[in-house]
Design a protein around this nucleic acid. Structure first.
Lengths: 339, 339
DNA sequence: GCTGTTATCGCAACCGTTTGCACTAAATTT
DNA sequence: AAATTTAGTGCAAACGGTTGCGATAACAGC
């Protein structure tokens, strides 16, 4: 039923091999026959069979997109959706397929990765998260599989391709922004040091704090690993202490919303009693009241660059493992005030 | 490098055809040789080549996931991420691949769909949204392509497979819930009638309103098609009018958050001045303060069922176009009060 | 006019699986 | 014991493209 290379060849009065060669613009085919063949192709609406060409070329033209295990927090973060959109857009343009990989736990994901690679189903992977210790990355490294990381690489940083923002710089920028508004007591709220973006933004915060000679005692470094579970105690303590900060750098919009809730509960108003700057510029930042001042990290661009890199490496096997840094920018809204 | 069917055959001392047949448990192979072959397969870690088997079987074992055009609102709704997770999970289990399809506008998406089907890249599609008029659906229908819809089918409802909640019932349930709390002035906030889930939930609301003999004037039906653009006027008017409602049914958590903002701005407090019940039970519902009472629609299950249906129809070509209704349930939180 | 190039294209093998059919040996029937 | 069935397995063609190599023709150089 579908039109094959033979149909085109027959209509153009040439052999299938000639059709194949004109498809890849092989110079050993004359201009005139190429034209003939191209006319036949468009007339029939020919599109080369994906499976067949992959089989012959020994590739799959598909990249696997690895999501964090669904049990983990932060899963429902539309950050991932945005990145996927970027990846997908680029893949669609370049005639690549992509396939989402998820699982309840690491073993499920590993299992899927294993059978996919053994069956030649994917040419490479994009890993949508990066943490300090991760069995998935370990496996990919061991097996010598091609992958790019969204977020900074931790181990083997020099041999792995990754796409990231300069989160340290962004953390600094956020802190300096608050400083310029007059804040001197600035705290950092992260979501646990396991996730690299959080620890990087914290590092940036600390760097800026020491440069600006801010007083940043250890209590000013708080974590809220779970957005749900009611373990807000450390944050609560900080916000009700004598020495409470006048502003906070928060590693994610979602966390900032959670922080707003706590403030609400203990009667602090934003930005009057506490200024907040966060990261990602997600819908959350636009919808809460007050709207959040946040650092936009060009999420979709992360996906586009990741796809571009992996495809580039698939098609040119021994490129070097470059790193791509996507810029960020501040979006000023109403959650920070001058003091 | 990768292990092929010939390697297994050689190790087991049989022919490739025998290996292929034991893979699909063909009864004409004796128990003993099957055992022999299976041992060889596990010893070598054999996994049949995806492309080759697809070529021979004339299928692709991959399903396309069609996202709404990215320009449209509501895009950044983690609803889609959850559904994708469900789809992906099911696909991974059944050894199917999936591929995300996006685009800036409908033509881009159509283009991708066209080349994908012509090149035999996908066996079917899952469409993640449903609206009253959609060129994508038109195209799929015209070409006789296999697809399932997440959300209710509008045209050709009896010939299309769709997975949905009973949004009319859910709309009723939400309204009745408020009624039981003592509310009599209940309004509905939707995001435009083009999206079917919104118009269905409204229909449910109206049904309940008339059954319960509520006074629901036309002004009680308001829409907020854009969450951003500051076109909040109709909502504002409603909330500041003489006859303002004491409770609202809101078609989506995100919209509910936007509503909370407006209330904040005009000095209405929730739930004291206005009770809110919304839909989806997304992160938004859990993070705002007060937390939203919301109707959970089992989002991930929608994805799982969609994947199950499409695969079922791919493997059994002339099944009937069944509909699947996924149940919902109320999650009570703090955004509604008894009056 | 003969040989050596060069440009252009087709033949046929191959990628790894699947499957109709033929074939062998054992089991059953006459 | 010969004939027929049956169970179990292998051969080879096919799926739709790709590509090394050889074939042909045109053309240049001597």
């Amino acid at each position: 039923m579908p039109v094959t290379i033979k149909d085109v060849a027959a209509l153009a009065g040439v052999s299938p091999s000639t059709v194949s060669r004109t498809c890849k613009n092989n110079p050993s085919i004359s201009k005139e026959t190429k034209e003939k063949v191209r006319r036949a192709m468009t007339e029939l609406g020919y599109e080369p069979n994906f499976q067949a060409s992959n089989l012959a070329n020994n590739n799959s033209r598909t990249i696997g997109i690895i999501l964090p295990v669904s049990a983990k927090e932060a899963y429902e973060n539309s950050f991932y959706l945005e990145v996927i959109r970027g990846i997908s857009q680029f893949c669609n343009q370049r005639q690549y397929a992509n396939t989402i990989i998820t699982g309840q736990d690491e073993n499920e994901i590993l299992q899927v990765i294993r059978t996919m690679t053994r069956s030649g189903q994917v040419d490479g992977f994009i890993v949508l998260y990066s943490r300090h210790q991760d069995p998935i990355i370990d496996y990919l490294d061991e097996e010598g599989l091609l992958y790019v990381l969204i977020g900074k690489a931790y181990q083997l940083a020099n041999q792995t391709i990754y796409i990231d923002n300069d989160n340290i710089l962004a953390g600094q920028a956020a802190t300096e922004y608050l400083y310029r508004l007059g804040h001197r007591k600035i705290a950092y709220l992260g979501c646990g040091d396991d996730l690299i973006f959080s620890s990087d933004r914290k590092a940036g915060y600390q760097l800026a704090a020491s440069r600006l000679r801010l007083d940043a005692p250890v209590e000013y470094n708080v974590n809220m690993p779970s957005v749900f579970g009611d373990d807000y105690s450390s944050v609560r303590e900080l916000l009700t202490s004598e020495n409470r900060p006048s502003a906070m750098v928060v590693c994610d919009d979602i966390l900032a919303v959670a922080l707003e809730r706590i403030c609400n509960e203990i009667g602090l108003s934003i930005p009057d009693d506490l200024s907040i700057i966060s990261f990602n510029n997600s819908l959350f930042a636009k919808l809460t009241s007050p709207q959040l001042t946040t650092i936009d990290i060009n999420t979709a661009q992360l996906g586009i660059e990741a796809a571009s890199q992996i495809i580039n490496h698939i098609e040119n096997p021994n490129l070097l493992a470059t790193k791509i840094i996507v810029p960020h920018f501040i979006v000023e809204r109403n959650s920070c005030r001058q003091i």
